[in-house]
Design a protein around this nucleic acid. Structure first.
Length: 260
DNA sequence: CCGGATGTTCACCT
DNA sequence: GAGGTGAACATCCG
């Protein structure tokens, strides 16, 4: 599913669109257009505009246009990006890997004949103009220890819930959170504000390294813990049987032996 | 064949 | 204000 890792791959792919001009806008699904946006409104806002930059904050992909609005793309759990029929990621867990034109929620046709396509079977993502970027916390791929400290400080909320709070830290979803906490040896149930300075510094490092590693491997589902997230699964580090629970409203797996 | 599980965001409630 | 809960989504798995 698209967490920071997948959306970063989407961003790199979408770079190919920079410098090209939008000629056609196809937005057949009104549900997918958020915050009052309509298909005619989107069309008139984008047609004839050149893409000047592609950015990413957490799981939010941003397409800047010359003298026009910024397009915000969210991919939910099952959204995919294609550009000129090249896929942003090879495989997306929890989503169908088949292609189906009925799942195309947004198509930007460029004047050179290429096209940028957002397809999303379950329609959990969305498109908006000029999204409120300021509501997102620092990006987990590049944040500092000090930024993580302030994101966690003074909170009694479960550590995992805080890491997934996009307004505090942007980009971490459920699978990434479990992998990070497993690597850091921290229980998802730890009060967020209970980490000492050394633990916070180490966690910041684990976050950055895990994001980078899974990016190289090719997705948020490529963590070492992932194959063991099932009944009877065992900790790859010490062999203890993993515990399953609900933390921050999401299914959570962790090692009761070394995650404290 | 069908019920349950799946993660993200947001509206709503305490 | 901060934190918790549930709805909506549609497909896939057992």
């Amino acid at each position: 599913m698209p967490e920071l890792v997948e959306v970063e791959a989407y961003r790199a792919l979408a770079e190919r669109g920079v410098g090209r001009t939008v000629e056609k806008v196809h937005a057949p699904d009104a549900w997918y257009l958020k915050r009052g946006l309509t298909a005619p409104g989107l069309r008139s806002a984008l047609r004839g505009r050149e893409l000047t930059a592609v950015r990413r904050i957490g799981k939010l992909l941003l397409l800047d246009t010359a003298l026009g609005p910024t397009v915000g793309l969210r991919f939910g759990m099952t959204g995919r990006l294609h550009l000129d029929d090249v896929a942003g990621v090879d495989q997306l867990i929890y989503s169908s890997n088949a292609a189906n034109p009925a799942w195309e929620r947004l198509v930007l046709g460029f004047s050179d004949g290429g096209r940028l396509v957002v397809s999303d079977p379950r329609r959990l993502g969305g498109v908006e103009l000029d999204p409120p970027e300021h509501r997102l916390g620092p990006d987990a791929a590049a944040f500092t220890t000090a930024q993580l400290r302030s994101a966690l400080a003074g909170s009694v909320v479960d550590l995992k819930a805080r890491l997934m709070d996009q307004s505090r830290v942007a980009g971490i979803g459920n699978l990434l959170a479990d992998e990070i906490l497993w690597r850091a040896g921290l229980s998802p149930l730890r009060p967020a504000g209970s980490l000492d300075p050394g633990q916070t510094r180490r966690l910041a490092g684990v976050v950055r390294r895990t994001v980078a590693l899974l990016g190289v491997r090719g997705g948020s589902h490529t963590g070492d813990l992932m194959p063991e997230r099932r009944p009877g699964g065992r900790c790859p580090a010490d062999g203890a049987e993993l515990v399953r629970g609900t933390v921050g409203g999401r299914t959570t797996w962790w090692c009761p032996l070394h995650q404290a």
